[in-house]
Design a protein around this nucleic acid. Structure first.
Lengths: 205, 205
DNA sequence: GCACCGATAACCGATTCGGTCAAGTGATTA
DNA sequence: TAATCACTTGACCGAATCGGTTATCGGTGC
């Protein structure tokens, strides 16, 4: 592994992204070391030189992603947002920012979730345990619904936004180019439209 | 191929679904004939017995899906719906109904779109041509926006629903079980909530 | 008992798999 | 310039798997 860290940061990232991309697209078994080497524009031998084995590479990628993802969700900022729509917006912005700087992590982590290869079961078993906690990154709070004209609309609207988030993610998962600014602006506009139509007058502006 | 059609319909469907599933998950190159045989609980030799070659099987699946999908979108019913939300609902119901009876076609056709294997380029080149027409299955019409309190909200709300549709599709694409009724009910409720909050009073009820 | 038939175990050559190793390259040192 | 060093990789390994073929096996009808 020290061989790998001796590389320039640019080359490291190229290789990491290639690996994330291949594992993300094909899964552990079907992604070959050769696929990764070709995508990264290096030789297959180098991959083994840097990481020792396919499994060690996969293990490193898991750690790498965790190290990137976990701090990018700033729970304290999230908690301090008192308004539901702002909270969703801030959460989305954090997620988008992470996707922008690390474009292949999203599809890789999604594939990890469906990974069924027995060769990496030991790695994923413990990891999937911890995941339960992470789901509750954001919740609908009691007093959120009070701002709605029909308080019972709060939950459905919240669910709607979650589904939309998945829709955006799916739409741009495999896109070659991805204009984050435009998407974020569109989402921001959508949020404000919802707010205007669902909130009581007194909570607008 | 006549060997295949001599099978019981049940067995035919099992094999077709296994093949759709594997090609859908892995793509043409990475899906092996053995994968398909194991999934279908038959021997690899039988697959060749029935379809001749891997490519012929893929070709048959393409034709099969086309024959299923095309008639299931009843454009005339869609055109006769004058209300935007009803049109979306009807369209979604048609899509859901197709997914219910042919659960693996969705992910297979999605994978066909991203298929890059040179071995089937000739098949897909012509097919991707025809696709342009099919996109325009439903549009926002001029007079739809007039029912909105703020007519300029119509386009964003429409876009929102399209994103949501993708979100639902992504969420249940790889799900083992999928309760269509529940999802459809949830979506129907969401639609009605949006209608209630965005339409002018006179268009409600 | 024998002919027929659908299914598959065993097999084919070719390719690809994860992984190794030694030769090649270019910069550093002396 | 000669020797050394760190790094990259083409060529290679045995094993597995690839798409595809064939010979055998267990029914079934006669």
């Amino acid at each position: 592994m020290d061989k790998f860290f001796a590389l320039s940061e640019e080359k490291q990232i190229t290789i990491i992204n290639a690996a994330l991309q291949c594992f993300g697209k094909f899964g552990y078994d079907k992604a070959s070391v050769n696929d990764i080497a070709v995508t990264a524009h290096i030789s297959k031998a180098s991959v083994f030189q840097y990481f020792g084995s396919k499994k060690q590479l996969y293990t490193y990628l898991l750690e790498y992603c965790m190290k990137i993802i976990m701090p990018s969700f700033d729970q304290t900022i999230l908690d301090s947002e008192t308004d539901l729509f702002n909270r969703i917006l801030v959460s989305s912005k954090m997620k988008m920012a992470a996707m922008k700087t690390h474009p292949f992590i999203t599809q890789f982590m999604a594939s990890v979730w469906e990974e069924a290869s027995p060769e990496v079961n030991d790695l994923l078993a413990s990891l999937k345990m911890e995941a339960g906690n992470f789901r509750n990154e954001m919740v609908l709070r009691e007093d959120d619904s009070l701002k709605f004209k029909n308080p019972e609309d709060a939950q459905p609207v919240y669910n709607m936004l979650l589904v939309m988030a998945e829709g955006y993610a799916a739409r741009y998962r495999n896109a070659a180019v991805f204009d984050f600014e435009t998407v974020m602006n569109e989402f921001e506009k959508t949020i404000s439209i919802l707010k205007n139509n669902f909130y009581k007058e007194e909570y607008l502006k």
